[in-house]
Design a protein around this nucleic acid. Structure first.
Lengths: 135, 135
DNA sequence: TTTCTTATTAGTAATCGTTCCGATTATCGG
DNA sequence: CCGATAATCGGAACGATTACTAATAAGAAA
């Protein structure tokens, strides 16, 4: 893991490395405390503050992203390729969707606003197949 | 203001009526405490909890929406027609964008997932003209 | 209008996710 | 190995939101 970006140069830390590995190993778009629980057995003295601080650093390094899914808590992901999210209104599950990406809509918007558009995010809302099956 | 929806029947309240009016009168996508400050002179005994509770009711009634813009606090709007948001990465300002809407992308997604898609939200990120001018 | 029921409010305390702080530990260049 | 300082731990602090209780007010019925 290269740890330099945006002027800053971060020292290596075993906790940070593992936080990124665990984040990369899941598709569940976890919370900070989920990561904390996962890593607590490995680092018995791990602190939640360490998880938060390192997630912020990983975001700064471009290795992770924060997701706003309407919950009261933040969720994170390590996927950096462009993709969208399917958010289940019933259970809150977030799934990645990468089959289509629409770069042309940025152009469309650029033409009719003076905002300097860098990119966009799309979230699709609905009900996941698990929840559909149950009702 | 019709106050019935989702089974519940709400009583009239002057505070709720004014909260909606003020929310409709601004394009600033305000926070709960901004609304509180605006209405405090009019209702000297207004409580912040009242603002939050009524915003939740207004959302339930379909008169308002909550916006997740990556901040630590919630922002609200009373515009109910479909539209997107332009979010300034520098100053946090949110502007509405209604010139284009892309209903066809829901169809596109429906075809390749088993999620039951109800709709989508798009947020465009960039720099607003005010911030561009300053730098 | 008066009464009665109950939704709504004000005021405050509690909650909960996140950030901050001081002391200790670890990284890493010299 | 030493020294400088970044990162950690543990816990306190913070800030937005929610929950609780007694008082108030909407609105239906008499």
């Amino acid at each position: 893991m290269k740890q330099e970006h945006s002027g800053k140069n971060y020292r290596y830390s075993r906790q940070r490395e593992r936080i990124l590995e665990v984040l990369r190993s899941t598709e569940s778009h976890p919370t900070a405390s989920w990561l904390y629980d996962k890593l607590k057995p490995e680092f018995p003295r791990l602190s939640l503050g360490t998880v938060y601080r390192n997630l912020a650093i990983l975001i700064d390094l471009g290795f992770a992203r924060k997701i706003d899914a309407g919950s009261t808590f933040d969720r994170f992901e390590a996927k950096t390729e462009p993709h969208y999210h399917l958010i289940c209104r019933k259970c809150g599950k977030i799934e990645d969707f990468e089959k289509h990406f629409f770069p042309e809509i940025d152009e469309e918007i650029r033409r009719s606003t003076d905002f300097d558009i860098e990119g966009h995010r799309i979230d699709f809302f609905g009900t996941c197949s698990d929840c559909n099956r149950k009702s």
